[in-house]
């Protein structure tokens, strides 16, 4: 049996009177893509922000590879091997691709100088070009190009390759195909599969159910801060999933309509 990489148990989070998370529990296994679905405001972003250390949960436990952990900052999450690509883009547009790829984990010389240490620019460029080559976007992109000159899809690819480079155990993507064109969307989805095949676990948030059926192994549905369903993709179909998300039994409605 595959090992549990990440296990969330009864997570709770409130913003004032809004209970964004009520007892959310979820398990992510090694080398699988889990799709997290749910309507706007269901609590998906809140859940992944809690895992990635943007804010602490009010109650509940997080286990990484069976060990209970406390995630108090984004740095904690990164150190545990959890890389997140947030809905509101994760890159600094005024920095080069290379500098973005290593932001927060810059290779430096004379490390004892702390924040005053000089960047190892040669290593930075070399590692960045290698990474771009590995993920197959080096032909189009130069590691020194500013991120502000890239398209949305290119930015998304950069963000994903950054998550990959630190050999993260868990990669979380919050609506990575939002605002992307057809070709760019396929690029991102192909990427998700490659990431999984390389042994990483992926938690994918999306509103596009077709994408889910293309890449996900399992589906988890949230509604009003709770996990309301969990199914393997092989055992379900589009209509069923849609009806769970909205809470209406669409397949029943459809059968009724057909019968008439």
């Amino acid at each position: 049996m595959m090992q549990d990489v990440l296990r969330l148990q009864n997570l709770q989070k409130s913003f004032g009177s809004v209970r964004a998370l009520k007892n959310a529990s979820l398990t992510l296994r090694e080398g699988e893509v889990v799709a997290l679905l749910g309507d706007n405001g269901a609590g998906k972003s809140t859940l992944i922000k809690a895992i990635s250390g943007v804010f602490p949960v009010d109650r509940g436990d997080i286990f990484v590879r069976g060990e209970k952990v406390s995630i108090r900052s984004t740095r904690d999450a990164m150190d545990l091997g959890i890389e997140t690509i947030h809905q509101d883009t994760s890159l600094a547009p005024d920095l080069s691709i290379a500098r973005n790829l290593f932001l927060g984990r810059e290779p430096v010389n004379f490390g004892w100088l702390g924040v005053f240490a000089p960047l190892d620019l040669a290593k930075l460029r070399k590692a960045a070009s290698e990474l771009l080559k590995r993920v197959g976007i080096s032909k189009k992109l130069d590691a020194d190009a500013l991120v502000s000159t890239l398209s949305g899809g290119e930015r998304q690819s950069i963000a994903i390759s950054r998550a990959m480079q630190f050999a993260a155990k868990v990669i979380i993507l919050d609506e990575p195909t939002n605002n992307l064109g057809v070709e760019e969307t396929h690029g991102v989805l192909r990427f998700v599969k490659e990431v999984r095949d390389a042994g990483h676990s992926v938690l994918l948030i999306t509103h596009n159910i077709h994408h889910v059926f293309q890449v996900a192994d399992r589906i988890v549905v949230m509604r009003r801060g709770e996990i309301v369903a969990e199914q393997t993709v092989a055992d379900t179909d589009l209509l069923t999933v849609e009806s769970i998300i909205t809470g209406a039994d669409m397949s029943a409605l459809l059968k009724e309509a057909r019968a008439k």
Partner: peptide
């Protein structure tokens, strides 16, 4: 690098620790 990143996109910088 941090200074430019913070001014360019604070949330992105914070998300990178």
């Amino acid at each position: 690098n941090w200074i430019s990143a913070i001014g360019s996109n604070r949330n992105a910088a914070v998300a990178r620790g």
